[in-house]
């Protein structure tokens, strides 16, 4: 018998708590594959966010820390500056990175911290029950925008953090990908690998991969429809692009 697909060692052998069709599970798998392929399990330290991925250390078999909501880039700074030989990554949601942690990510980038950031944009606060995130689409119904997000109700516009970060001299690489089917998943993995490779090469700045990631539960859609929604809606506002580097 031929093995065509197997668990990658950095991904632990256990069921996850994620909802069916959730992008976090796919992103974890890709991340684990990348850490295995680069053979850096024994020198990597990961930072789990506050959000649905708070328990990422239950699935990723690398040294990990769980930190306060949004503060991962500051924690990563403390780690990388004192351990330049280690590979440091943060894994953050859009509430974590683009709302409460905006200052921390902007300034880690502005200081050109040599860290890697995996930024999971699912256009909602998943963990707290599907509230509006800064990245929520106009018209999108969430627990706190029940009539659909509407800027004239003071609810603001979708925030394109990656575009902002790409403008800063302190980032070496910013790419937006999407988990919206096989090509998108392959591209996301390649982007993650490149981001880590840059850190391994001691490239002089922060590398970030934004991942448009389905949250079927709070998008109130089937997993298949959620993938399509990324294609048809989300990527119109958050274009899939290599924004920098």
């Amino acid at each position: 018998m031929n093995t065509v697909f197997k668990r990658t060692p950095v991904l632990k052998d256990c069921p996850t708590h994620y909802c069916p069709g959730c992008g976090h599970g796919i992103a974890h798998r890709l991340l684990a594959e990348v850490l295995d392929e680069l053979d850096i399990q024994d020198r990597t330290i990961g930072i789990a966010p506050v959000g649905c991925a708070v328990l990422a250390y239950n699935y990723l078999d690398v040294d990990m820390v769980e930190v306060a909501h949004g503060r991962a880039p500051a924690v990563a700074t403390g780690m990388k500056r004192t351990n330049p030989d280690k590979v440091i990554f943060s894994y953050q949601g859009d509430g974590d990175l683009a709302a409460i942690g905006t200052a921390e990510i902007i300034h880690a980038a502005h200081r050109a911290e040599r860290i890697t950031v995996i930024f999971i944009n699912n256009a909602v606060f998943g963990m707290t029950g599907g509230q509006m995130a800064p990245t929520t689409m106009l018209g999108q119904v969430t627990a706190t925008t029940q009539q659909g997000r509407n800027p004239s109700n003071g609810q603001g516009y979708p925030l394109q953090v990656s575009e902002i970060l790409a403008l800063l001299p302190g980032t070496v690489y910013v790419e937006r990908c999407a988990l919206n089917g096989v090509p998108g998943i392959r591209r996301t993995k390649a982007a993650m690998k490149h981001a880590f490779q840059l850190q391994l090469d001691d490239a002089p700045g922060l590398s970030l991969v934004e991942v448009l990631s389905p949250c079927p539960t709070y998008w109130r859609m089937s997993p298949a429809k959620a993938m399509k929604w990324i294609d048809e809606q989300m990527s119109q506002v958050f274009p899939i692009a290599r924004l920098k580097g």
Partner: peptide, 25 residues
């Protein structure tokens, strides 16, 4: 290591990061 942080929120979390790796911060 010396870092002038963007806020005290960041400073204490940088301490957290360094401390988590076993360093005196």
């Amino acid at each position: 290591v010396f870092v002038q942080s963007e806020s005290e929120l960041a400073a204490i979390n940088m301490v957290f990061g360094a401390a988590a790796t076993g360093k005196r911060a």
